[in-house]
Simulated assay, not measured.
Amino acid sequence: MSAFAHLGLGGAALRLEYQWVGVADSPHPTLVFLHEGLGSIALWKDFPEQLCQAAGMRGLVFSREGYGRSTPRPHKERWPVGFMHRQAWEVVPALLQELGIERPWLFGHSDGASIALLHAARFAVSGVIVAAPHIMVEDISVSSIAAAREAYLEGGLRARLARYHEDIDSAFWGWNDVWLDPAFRAWDIRDQLPAIAAPLLAIQGEDDEYGTLEQIYGIARLAPQTQLLVLPQCGHSPHRDQAGRLIDAATRFMTGTNRSH
């Protein structure tokens, strides 16, 4: 059952839907899930529950503003190039404080993975797992996002996504417009990665249609504690394409680190 957190940030009132999953009385740090650019609580389906049960952890799943049942993006408003920085450095800290979460584990996918990395560069976390992260913009990313625009306008993508968002245009155009903005080609968070001190697991599929393996190799060069997992026959969503292997790897990584706390 979802609940709502009410945050006041910079004069704006945000209502964020959230849901607790996993082991309620776990002694380990809370695992916070950060969704992809078109994601929401509903689009994760049962993956967070499965991972938290396997790891013996309590989890928090939430929909960012503009997504799911959270405050929608005003239709005339465009996300700025630094929208992920704002999420990582303003919104996520405010939500964690509101819910009494300290030193969480972070599990981020795609845009949510980038937000997780940015948050961990400035705030204390127990560890970070990123799946299909973006640390810079590649041609393959822009091409696939342009193709998604056509699928939304002419294909069945809009209908498929509508079940996961109360305001589907808020979710889609907020993501699509900023990624296809020529100014976004300069977006790059590699300068933040050396500040991450926490344990880090970076995962990507060999067939990721939104990024090359340089995304995770780049993380490992800049944050040397990074462990890498490359998944063959896997696209941009490892938690859907290879959920079992991802859960096993993430559980081993977090369990080993948790036991050392």
Rank of each mutant, 00 (worst) to 15 (best):
E36M: 00
R252W: 12
A124L: 13
E17Y: 00
R78P: 11
S114M: 04
L231E: 00
I115L: 08
V32A: 10
A249N: 13
G174I: 11
T30R: 08
L180N: 14
P224L: 05
D111V: 08
S40K: 01
L38C: 11
P29W: 03
E98C: 14
Y18N: 04
A42S: 12
S143K: 15
F172G: 05
Q227W: 01
G127A: 09
Y152I: 00
R158K: 15
L106F: 13
D241Q: 04
D177T: 06
S143T: 09
T255V: 12
Q204S: 08
W79T: 01
L51I: 10
T226E: 02
F253C: 03
I115W: 02
T251S: 11
R15M: 01
M57L: 14
G39R: 02
I203W: 03
A171V: 13
P199R: 04
I247R: 10
V128N: 06
L99G: 13
P27L: 07
A124P: 12
A42W: 01
G235K: 06
Q225T: 08
S110Y: 01
H35Y: 07
A146V: 01
H6D: 05
R160D: 14
W44R: 14
R259D: 14
G56Q: 10
D167Q: 06
R252G: 13
W179C: 11
P48H: 10
G211F: 02
S143W: 11
C234I: 08
S144V: 02
L231G: 00
Q192V: 03
L38E: 07
